[in-house]
Design a protein around this nucleic acid. Structure first.
Lengths: 190, 190, 190, 190
DNA sequence: AATGAATGAGCATTCATTCAT
DNA sequence: TATGAATGAATGCTCATTCAT
């Protein structure tokens, strides 16, 4: 049996979903409330039963469809394992997470509406990567000096890859960063 | 003496300039034709003497205010010099060029996924960096294997730094990439 | 014990009360059904159990919250007493009655919805005053010629005083009317 | 020949006129911008070329269609003449002025309690009447004591007469006020 | 009796664009 | 070249009302 409240909750999520898809397709400004309502097979008026304004809906999409938890989870999954072995995997998992939330990522890039949210994601993502690298530095696997630059470069490469549609070469990126942080490359230094 | 054509050209550039500023301030969708006209001290109607549509104006801004030439110039300025010495400078010049065109950069980010103008910039920028690195590889200073990843990482780090407002640490980034590409780090490999 | 019918009656009155207050605060057009329902701590749907439409609710407020009975009562309270002594009191009682129903009075003035109701009040009020004056004329205290104008002037002065928020000077108004109707003023005629 | 500016001025006045008529017919809230535009045979958008908002239009109507100047003119026309002779005429002229601006008067009544425009009219109207009465008091024709009440009663009677649609009896009102202010009535005092 | 999800029509307002002047 | 009046379509949003629960 479906209670009133359950159905309302479902409808709300349906609207958030429709909004996310429509925003991603047309941009936040480009997507009209009517567009979103139509995508949800609903009248525009109903939208205002669930959200105070379009702005409110944007905020809901950003908050409720965020992938920060998934990003954080990546850290614990790979903690303690050698960087040489898992950095490619970590980057790839990273890349996959962005891909799985492509709509939201494109939203982050597209407008200033999402500036704070975007910064949150960047900060969190870099922290996740940085934490892992630091643990490897403490384990003596990596030199600690360039960890910040390395975390930044990994995230930035993956993110820009998504923005341009030309995904990054995960293995090359991992190697570059590992060698850059002191891991001995198979080719000798020049 | 000012010819008719010169004056027309001047007017056109004034409109493009006003559009660039207004787009950067309010976003492309957020800036109305009236806003732009006011910023140029001109009536909306006049805009349509010089441009067929708002879209046309956007295209003009993107094309005519591009910084691709400046980017390309960086290459020749630094060609032939040792990467260890000039990579930080090259990245910094890169960063400065984006900073000098902050309005346009924020515009690029706000364009939709597939926008050709954005892709052009990314491609060109990476090519510039890549060309330089390749020349250093040919000179025997760097290993050639990870050049693509390195160019990508440099561009991405700088660009994301601009988008988030937290500029990248140029020297660290340069070191990371140099060591990653085979330059012997001062600290021994692990 | 509370019967069903009693409870229904109570609910109805609660709604009328909430409507009156909300109408006075926001105007009839400015008050939404939702506003009224919220003021009554009730959902909009329930309103339609008790009233067919918003218009119906307006009518109910106008009819059921009228102060015609109170106005009529004023007459019997003062009947038979000398005009010189009680006219100030009568006007003041009049003024007080309007003040006690300020919400409804402001409603009367504010919209054309209330035109018929407003006319009723004006007519009744003038009749009350006029009846009293006529009784005094028959008692030989006042001249009968200008009774209509006098009743009209008294009501109008008080009513406009409420509309503008600058209440009338009751004693001066009483004197003016009394002298105008033949009562000998303390100052000699010119 | 009609200049651009003249035509614009004409259009503006046409819109104010259409607004006045429409407001009077449907009330301020009841008249939609579309209604007004249709009454002016114009698209709603054009309205916003001339006025910033509906509120702005209301203000323009109230200011530009005011009858304060006409009201003030009445004073000078009748100054210096005996009250006994001209008070009926003054009241009648007053009444006629309101009648000639019936639309605006009904608008004034529909404004909220504290509305500045309404207060201005009331104050000015009463001042006009009061000034005249004071001049007659100084000329020794009237007693000065009840001038305020008299001016108020005259204005209120005329105004309420318009609001209810039952116009006041001008001669009776004039007599009432004159006798009330000390002019010797033809009937002796009681 | 009471809820609140849902609708459809309407509202004030904005805007890119056109065009007579 | 330049103006700005004018339009028509769209936008975000509100609201009276209905109805299944």
């Amino acid at each position: 049996m479906v209670t009133r409240q359950e159905q309302a909750e479902r409808r709300r999520e349906q609207l958030v979903e429709a909004a996310l898809v429509t925003f991603a397709r047309k941009g936040i400004d480009g997507a009209s409330v009517k567009d979103i309502a139509e995508a949800a097979n609903v009248t525009p008026g109903l939208l205002y039963h669930y959200f105070d304004s379009k702005e409110d809906l944007v905020a809901a999409v950003l908050e409720e469809r965020g992938f920060l938890p998934q990003l954080r989870a990546l850290l614990s999954e790979h903690a303690g394992q050698s960087a040489a072995a898992v950095l490619p995997e970590l980057i790839r998992a990273f890349d996959d997470t962005l891909a799985a939330h492509a709509d939201l990522v494109s939203l982050f890039f597209s407008t200033s509406h999402a500036d704070a949210a975007f910064r949150d994601v960047v900060t969190t993502a870099q922290n996740v990567l940085q934490s892992y690298l630091e643990s490897r530095a403490q384990a003596g696997e990596l030199r600690p000096e360039l960890i910040g630059a390395a975390a930044g470069a990994m995230f930035a490469s993956v993110a820009i890859g998504h923005k341009t549609g030309r995904r990054v070469d995960v293995d090359e990126l991992a190697q570059l960063v590992l060698y850059g942080m002191g891991l001995q490359p198979p080719f000798g230094g020049s």
